[in-house]
Structure formats: structure tokens, C-alpha cells
């Protein structure tokens, strides 16, 4: 079972990755016993599986994902939410109300209006139906404060880091609360705009350098340096 690239090497669509008894993982496909890449990204070989971590991608909804979206329309029975996916998603009015929903009486715009940002969870989605969202869990609902950063969704795991190492560094160094939407939208909430600026800078750095190693150290370094610069200015 030969493989044709090194681990974490850059590949482009159509590149032959492996032959023989491998399972085609993410962003790969198999044809006549040969495994090819289908995206620009980095190969990852494991025991039996070959994955390609895409360097640029769009979000494909998955049941159970927490996402950050924007209300784009209010309809009869709910809201249409843009979650940066190929499909618009729905949030039903009955999901938000405590009691049953009465279309004649209840004014949906008084709950969420066009332009509001929401943290929500995907409860159902398949190829034939648009994603359905819920906000009926602690921590979900309207965003009232903070700043939004958008990154390529495949880089969310990199922002989290191994066992959450990266995200905990950003949180502790900047004092910000960072909430990651699986769709690539990140909410940063800090006590001061300056703290938020730092955290956003760190996230942007992770996005542009996600395919290099030793990133955690460089991010820590950058944050420390920036903070020093700031205290001198004060």
C-alpha cells in the first residue's frame, strides 16, 4: 500500500495520494483502488485512513454543530438565518416561545429582527432539507455584545488547538471570551476594545499560518509582545 506524499504536505485536487487498502477520508475520493485529493490542503495519513485538511473551504452544515448566523428574513412561522453555508437555515417560532405560537398575536420581529446575530445549534439537516436550528439551550440566542471574526471553517480546529491549548492561551492572554461557531464565525467578547483587538489579531494569525508548525508558540509570543507594547504606550 504505497503512499505518495509526506504527512502534512501540500496537495491540490487530482493528486494521487495512496493506492490500495486505504479508506477515503475528508476531501478525498477513491477510484479503481486509487485515492485522490479533491481540495487544496494538507494530507494526513493514519493507519487506514487518508484525510486532506482543506486550506480554503466553505461550511457544510452538520447536525449538532454550534453556529453563529444572521437573521436575513422573518416569515410566517419563524426566521431565515444565514449561516454562511450553501443552504439557508430555519429557526421556528415555536422553538423560541415558552407557550404555543399564535401567528395572529405574536410579533416575531420583537423577538429577533432582520440583522440580529444569533448563536444557534443545528438540530436537523440532510441533502433534501435545509438545516433547522434551535436556540433552546443554555448559551444560545441573540448576541448583544462583542466582535465577529470570519475565518475558513476548516481552521476552527486549529484555533482550538490540541486539547484546547490554543484557545486557552488566547483567552488567558487577552482576557477575552471567545466563542467559536463551527461555520467559521467567531465571537470575541472582552472588557475593552483593545482586548478584543488582540484576540482578533491572534485569530487572524492562526488563519493565515494554519499550515505551519510551532504556531502555538508564535501566537503566545506575539500576544506577549503586543501587550508589552501597549503598556509602554500607556
Amino acid at each position: 500500500m504505497p503512499t505518495f506524499y509526506e504527512n502534512r504536505q501540500l496537495v491540490t485536487p487530482g493528486d494521487l495520494l495512496a493506492e490500495g487498502n486505504y479508506v477515503a477520508g475528508e476531501n478525498t475520493f477513491k477510484e479503481e483502488g486509487k485515492l485522490y485529493a479533491s481540495c487544496v490542503g494538507m494530507v494526513e495519513y493514519s493507519e487506514r485512513r487518508v484525510n486532506v485538511v482543506a486550506l480554503k473551504a466553505f461550511y457544510t452544515p452538520k447536525v449538532g454543530d454550534t453556529v453563529i448566523g444572521k437573521v436575513t428574513d422573518v416569515t410566517m412561522g419563524g426566521w431565515i438565518i444565514d449561516i454562511d453555508a450553501p443552504y439557508p437555515s430555519l429557526l421556528r417560532a415555536s422553538d423560541v416561545m415558552e407557550r404555543s405560537y399564535r401567528p395572529q398575536k405574536d410579533e416575531l420581529t420583537s423577538i429577533y429582527d432582520v440583522g440580529d446575530l444569533l448563536i444557534a445549534k443545528i438540530v436537523s439537516y440532510d441533502r433534501t432539507r435545509d438545516p433547522l436550528l434551535t436556540v433552546r439551550e443554555p448559551g444560545l440566542g441573540k448576541i448583544t455584545r462583542g466582535q465577529i471574526v470570519e475565518i475558513t471553517p476548516t481552521k476552527i480546529p486549529r484555533v482550538i488547538g490540541r486539547k484546547g491549548s490554543m484557545i486557552s492561551i488566547i483567552k488567558s492572554e487577552t482576557g477575552c471570551h471567545v466563542l467559536l461557531g463551527q461555520n467559521g464565525t467567531v465571537l470575541v467578547r472582552g472588557k475593552t476594545p483593545e482586548e478584543e483587538r488582540l484576540a482578533i489579531m491572534a485569530i487572524r494569525k492562526i488563519e493565515s499560518e494554519s499550515h505551519t508548525s510551532g504556531l502555538t508558540n508564535r501566537v503566545t509570543e506575539m500576544l506577549k509582545k503586543e501587550k508589552e507594547g501597549e503598556s509602554k504606550n500607556d
Binding site: P13, G14, N27, F29, Y36, S38, C39, V40, A57, F58
Partner: peptide, 11 residues
């Protein structure tokens, strides 16, 4: 198309 992250069989 590749830059948009659309999965492709080959360029």
C-alpha cells in the same frame, strides 16, 4: 473553482 474550496476530481 479550486480556490473557492469546491471539491473536484482534478484540475
Amino acid at each position: 473553482l479550486a480556490d473557492a474550496g469546491i471539491p473536484m476530481r482534478d484540475l
